[in-house]
Design a protein around this nucleic acid. Structure first.
Length: 243
DNA sequence: CCGGTTGTTCAGCG
DNA sequence: GCGCTGAACAACCG
């Protein structure tokens, strides 16, 4: 569920509730559910891994973390975190973090940092990267201020596509590879979106969870790397280490 | 049945 | 106040 493209898929499934009034609220969320009652959804948005439900005076921010899921016009057995019932159906959210955001969303979010946004700004991403020469490539691709929406799968696939070792330092990577990283972070996210919709995402993984490199047939390394200490799958032979 | 995880936050420590 | 570490959260798969 959690990476950016999955949130975009959710966003595409809910316009049926845009402009509709919340007739009933349920779930074990700690936020004040009364506040949503009889309010009308203005719009649904997303920023990276955040799913946003906009009301007139406030916004509900949903983060699915590792295990979050949702159901539209159906329910799961497990406890609902937040359920919104409209005249034409319902949106049920499970195992997610929920926050209420006050004020102007444009002051909270830099939309151009979202790799899937129409306003994604590769030049800004490049600037941010160059300001962090000591940062490791694997950490950069998980950094939500630089690549909002990118997660561990996208990280591993992008680094494999651009032939860069996850422990490479940003400042030592040739500029042409930095540009490739930025380009592929977006491109792979859209490939992810298409494949996920067609239920063929895993089939297209070339690095994530893989045992062997399809380019050179040598075994992949599997290690927890970087400050983020997340699983990296990489080929020592095909992915260059820049230090 | 146990181990692991598409993620983030926060407490605790030096 | 900082940076770092590890726990906590919690559902599902193999």
């Amino acid at each position: 569920m959690p990476e950016g493209p999955s949130i975009v898929i959710l966003k595409e499934l809910v316009p049926q509730f845009s402009g509709k009034k919340v007739l009933e609220v349920n779930g074990n969320t700690k936020i004040d559910k009364e506040r949503l009652l009889n309010k009308t959804v203005v719009e649904f948005k997303s920023w990276g891994k955040h799913f946003l439900i906009l009301f007139e005076d406030f916004t509900i921010r949903i983060h699915f973390l590792l295990f979050g899921t949702y159901r539209i016009n159906e329910r799961k057995e497990s406890q609902t975190r937040l359920g919104l019932i409209f005249e034409n159906g319902e949106l049920n959210l499970y195992t997610c973090g929920i926050h209420v955001l006050e004020g102007d969303l444009n002051e909270i979010y830099d939309w151009s940092a979202d790799v899937m946004s129409d306003t994604w700004d590769p030049a800004k991403a490049r600037q941010k990267l160059l300001l962090n020469p000591e940062m490791q490539a694997c950490d950069a691709l998980l950094n939500q201020e630089i690549f909002a929406g990118s997660g561990n799968i996208i990280k591993n696939e992008v680094l494999y596509r651009i032939h860069v070792h996850p422990s490479s330092k940003i400042g030592a990577i040739p500029k042409i590879q930095i540009d490739a990283m930025i380009r592929e972070a977006r491109q792979y996210s859209f490939d992810f979106l298409v494949w996920k919709k067609a239920y063929v995402l895993k089939k297209h993984w070339l690095a994530h969870t893989k045992k062997t490199c399809q380019r050179c047939d040598l075994p992949f390394k599997k290690e927890k790397l970087g400050k983020t200490n997340r699983r990296s799958f990489y080929c020592e032979n095909c992915q260059q280490l820049y230090i």
